[in-house]
Amino acid sequence: MAEFALILVSTILVNNFVLVKFLGLCPFMGVSSKLETAMGMGLATTFVLTLSSATSELANVWLLEPLGIEYLRTITFILIIAAIVGFTEMVVHKTSPLLYKVLGIYLPLITTNCAVLGVALLNVSENHGFLGSLLYGFGASIGFTLVLVLFAAMRERINAADVPEPFRGGSIALITAGLMSLAFMGFTGLIPG
């Protein structure tokens, strides 16, 4: 139990995928200009990341390792992620048209989110096991959503602020992201000893 809690805290704060491991930076910069879209993206990513993390682990243990074809890991995982994203899109479209409207274009975009593939590959190299992978994926996506929403809220404020001319737009966003990253590195202090 303590181990699982540790995984969650570690992925959400200490080893945050966006700000410490620098994965999934494209959606982080791309869809963070509005708070609502950031929440939609976070929600969709949480769902897909958790599911694909567990499924990839299963495929690795039951398919790749028994057949001795671990070198095809990346292509297999990409295949699984793409299929899950497509499946999710169809199910959401059918069961909840409202959610489908909110998520919109962000659902298919998740396929190209490098954090999703990164989590699946890290699961293998760090030997998390099935439950561990599930939690690892869930924690990673919660961490992703957390910083995405925080960053979007900041950018909305920055848009209204008096930023010097040369720093407007993308530059101030990158500087802010860097400062956030520095702040998140401070969570490393949570690890005892």
């Binding site: 001795g68 074809i69 095809l72 297999t76 699984i80 497509g86 499946f87």
Partner: peptide, 25 residues
């Protein structure tokens, strides 16, 4: 083995997606 297994995996996922597109039309 690699070609067959990955091919089968892709085919299985394709079948699932194909079924889903009919089931969740």
């Amino acid at each position: 083995t690699a070609i067959i297994s990955i091919g089968l995996l892709a085919a299985a996922l394709g079948l699932v997606l194909g079924y889903a597109s009919i089931r969740f039309k």
